[in-house]
Amino acid sequence: DENEERIRAFALYKGIDPEKARELWERGEINKDDEEKAWREYK
């Protein structure tokens, strides 16, 4: 689903483990601007 892809995109963008990215996502600790930037680059 799209959230999974967004988490993966963010992990790649930040160079972090996707599981770590998922934890940040679930806790609401992902910066929305960074997340959008990562998503645009990923697509």
Rank of each mutant, 00 (worst) to 15 (best):
R40Q: 13
E19W: 10
K43E: 08
A11M: 02
N3Y: 15
D33A: 11
R27K: 13
Y13W: 14
K32N: 07
E23T: 07
A38F: 11
D17P: 14
A38H: 04
E35Y: 15
R40E: 12
Y13K: 02
R6F: 14
E2G: 09
N31K: 08
E2P: 12
E36F: 07
D1K: 11
A38R: 02
R6H: 07
L24S: 03
E23Y: 08
K14Q: 08
D1M: 11
L12T: 09
E29L: 14
D33Q: 10
R27Y: 04
K43Q: 13
G15T: 01
R22V: 03
K20I: 14
R22K: 10
A38G: 04
R40S: 11
A38N: 03
N31C: 13
E19C: 14
E29D: 10
G15I: 01
P18K: 10
E26W: 10
E26T: 09
K43R: 12
K20A: 13
E26R: 11
W39Y: 07
I7W: 12
I16D: 00
A9S: 04
E41D: 10
K14D: 01
E35P: 02
E5Q: 11
P18D: 08
N31R: 07
L12H: 11
Y13T: 02
L24P: 00
D17G: 07
L12M: 13
W25V: 04
R6V: 05
G28W: 02
I16Q: 00
W25F: 13
R27Q: 09
I30E: 01
N31Q: 09
L24K: 03
K14C: 15
K43D: 06
G15A: 05
R27G: 06
A21M: 04
A11H: 00
A21T: 01
D17E: 11
D34V: 05
E36A: 08
K37W: 09
E41N: 10
K43T: 13
K14Y: 15
A21E: 00
R6G: 01
E19F: 08
A21N: 00
F10E: 01
E19S: 11
G28R: 05
W39C: 07
W39I: 05
E5K: 07
D1Y: 13
E2C: 15
N31F: 06
A21Y: 02
E35D: 08
E29P: 02
I7R: 01
E2A: 13
K37C: 14
E36K: 05
E41A: 14
I30R: 02
W25Q: 03
E26N: 11
E36I: 08
L24T: 01
E5N: 06
K32D: 07
F10S: 01
L24R: 02
R27L: 10
A9Y: 08
K20D: 10
W39S: 02
A21S: 04
A11Y: 03
E26F: 12
G15C: 15
R22F: 06
R40D: 08
R8S: 04
N3H: 14
E23K: 07
A21F: 02
A38W: 09
R40Y: 13
L24G: 00
E23S: 08
D1S: 12
I16A: 00
P18S: 08
K43M: 14
E41L: 13
I30Q: 02
Y42L: 05
L12Q: 13
F10L: 14
D34K: 02
R40W: 12
R8I: 14
E19A: 13
R6N: 02
I30D: 01
L12N: 07
N31T: 14
R40M: 14
E35F: 15
E29F: 08
E26I: 13
D1G: 12
A21K: 00
